[in-house]
Design a protein around this nucleic acid. Structure first.
Lengths: 150, 150
DNA sequence: GGTGATTACAGAATTATATTCTTAAATGGA
DNA sequence: TCCATTTAAGAATATAATTCTGTAATCACC
């Protein structure tokens, strides 16, 4: 299983991908065992992969919104269809099926309000079975991390 | 500025960090110009960094919730204090100041419902100026990406 | 407490990749 | 067209990843 050292490695790698030597120094081991631990975490699928994070503003995505979507009825077929359609829209970064007052929470990133409007009108609201869409625009992302507490 | 090739590079790196040779093959360039383009994108801050993504279940975070937080009043002081406190809680992965029916949208990841309950009661709700907290639990993450459309 | 098996560690050796350097080709105004 | 600037490619070098080998620590079992 996973010990204290593995957790230290994961904490470091969640912050920033670093070379083995740097990680080794942080966890107090030599390069080889550190390397082997990282490989093992990757093989076990605990580390799913490594990705580049981009600066949202610099690539011109000026609008981020969270959309609360309510479906007409909670039929399995309707939900499955919705979930499949969602995958094909690159504007949708995240889609979570949630409990509570609505069914799905979507994270949307687009260039401007015009594109957002188009997306809602021409892509999202035309999907079958949608009852309601309520959008909240992100004015400021106070904290934005991919790291889990370990 | 950024051309078609740079975009291809960013698309690839947002999916998975790859070595220069692989990226070079994908964009149809040799290693050197590809390398220099990646470095330039990093220096410009378009690429903010590279992080490891972990398997949530495998590290034992069984509960993810989105919390809608409403403050008592929209005073700058109150908002600033709230935003600072938020930073110190590792259970909070994201915190967005949003428009609409509530003020902040928080993404919370914890081990179990007990820990969630403790977090809400002992950490979040005790913060000064909080009027209301409404939580939606994630039952299934249909799509979960860090990649922006390019 | 001893003992064999297993696991974890470290340093050297090797391989692969990143980075730099040099030169040539392409591009874009004046 | 010509000069300046940018972009590309291949070779050379530096750095990091990966493998290999031997040693120490750990642990179940006696």
């Amino acid at each position: 299983m996973m010990d204290r050292t593995d957790r230290k490695i994961l904490i470091a790698l969640q912050q920033e991908r670093q070379n083995t030597k740097e990680i080794a120094a942080k966890v107090g081991l030599s390069v080889t065992p550190t390397y082997e631990r990282i490989k093992k975490l990757e093989q076990q699928g605990i580390i799913k992969g490594y990705v580049a994070l981009l600066d949202r503003e610099k690539i011109g995505k000026r609008v981020v919104a969270y959309c609360q979507v309510t479906l007409l009825k909670h039929q399995k077929g309707l939900i499955n269809t919705f979930e499949q359609e969602i995958q094909t829209f690159p504007e949708i970064m995240e889609c979570h099926h949630v409990s509570g007052g609505f069914d799905f929470l979507l994270k949307i990133a687009v260039s401007d309000i015009k594109e957002f409007h188009q997306f809602i009108n021409e892509k999202l609201s035309v999907l079958e079975g949608i009852s309601n869409i309520h959008s909240s625009f992100v004015m400021n992302s106070v904290k934005e991390s991919t790291a889990y507490k370990l």
